[in-house]
Amino acid sequence: MGVQSELKSEDYHQLEMIETIDHSDRDEMEKYDIEETLPEEDLTSTEEGALEAVLFAMGESVDVAKLAQVIDKTPYQTQKILEKMREKYERPESGIMLLELNGSYQLCTKKQYYDDLIVIAKQPKKPQLSDVVMETLSIVAYKQPVTKAQVEQIRGVSSDHAINKLMEYDLIRELGRLDVPGRPILFGTTENFLRYFGVESTEQLPQLSPVQIEDYKAEAEAEMKATLDV
């Protein structure tokens, strides 16, 4: 019995040693795994820093394919990194945001800090659109590419002033010319239009209801009547 007890005690001691070695090996393996992942994490941080620097310096939207060239990644991999960055900027303590505009990305200040920004920047506030200008912009946004004649056909009145104002505000731009006699100019919305309304693409615009369309027609008729009365 004494021998068996001694053997059991010795076996137990050996098991303790094996367990200690096993824990030590696991610790080394975990340490090794952590050390193996660190370069990848550091690389991601470096890539985020490079993208942030480029977007900040450009001051305008940059296509994801061009950003991919900067960090030597595929557009898909780059977009994943950008989405991670966007989540970081969405935190309440951040004053900037990463905006996606039809496959391009741009760093912008958050809307709620605009009044604070203009204290230093002294930039005029974004233009207030009259009903007539807003109506014209809506037609361009939903019907683009569209000619001035097509806009006027929908509204029933001349739209020269509204079109010129929208061009001045950089909310619409010339997209080209329609391949018909006279080659009229085709108009469409700009990236500034997306920023103005806080959407990433025109697909996010709300659908117009038949009631809204009738309201537009009524407003156009009222405008035409007022013009004739003058």
Rank of each mutant, 00 (worst) to 15 (best):
G2W: 05
G2Q: 06
G2I: 07
G2M: 09
Q4A: 14
Q4S: 12
E6F: 04
S9T: 09
D11W: 13
Y12N: 10
H13T: 09
H13M: 11
Q14S: 03
L15Q: 00
E16N: 05
M17H: 05
M17A: 09
E19S: 07
I21S: 04
R26F: 07
D33T: 02
E35V: 00
E36S: 05
T37F: 00
T37K: 09
P39G: 01
E41L: 09
E41T: 05
D42K: 11
S45G: 13
T46N: 14
E48N: 12
A50C: 00
V54R: 00
F56P: 01
M58G: 03
G59D: 00
L67Y: 00
A68C: 03
Q69R: 13
Q69I: 07
Q69S: 15
V70S: 06
V70L: 13
I71S: 04
K73W: 09
Y76M: 04
T78K: 00
T78S: 01
L82E: 01
K84Y: 11
E87I: 08
K88A: 15
E90Q: 14
E90W: 07
E93Y: 11
E93M: 13
S94A: 14
S94R: 13
S94Q: 07
I96Y: 03
I96H: 01
L99S: 07
E100A: 01
L101E: 01
L101Y: 00
G103W: 06
Y113Q: 08
I118S: 03
I120K: 10
A121H: 08
A121T: 15
A121S: 14
Q123G: 10
S130M: 12
V132M: 15
M134E: 12
T136K: 10
S138P: 03
I139A: 04
A141Q: 03
K143P: 01
P145R: 09
V146M: 13
V146H: 12
V146Q: 12
A149T: 05
V151S: 04
Q153I: 04
R155N: 09
V157C: 13
V157N: 03
V157D: 09
S159W: 11
S159H: 08
S159A: 15
S159L: 13
D160Y: 08
I163R: 14
N164I: 13
M167Y: 06
E168H: 08
E168N: 10
Y169V: 11
I172P: 02
L175E: 06
G176C: 06
G176M: 05
R177Q: 03
V180L: 11
R183H: 07
P184R: 07
P184C: 10
I185F: 11
L186A: 03
F193C: 14
L194Q: 03
R195M: 05
Y196M: 11
F197A: 12
S201T: 00
S201A: 02
T202K: 11
Q207T: 05
L208G: 01
V211A: 15
Y216G: 12
A222P: 01
E223I: 09
K225W: 10
K225D: 13
T227G: 10
T227D: 12
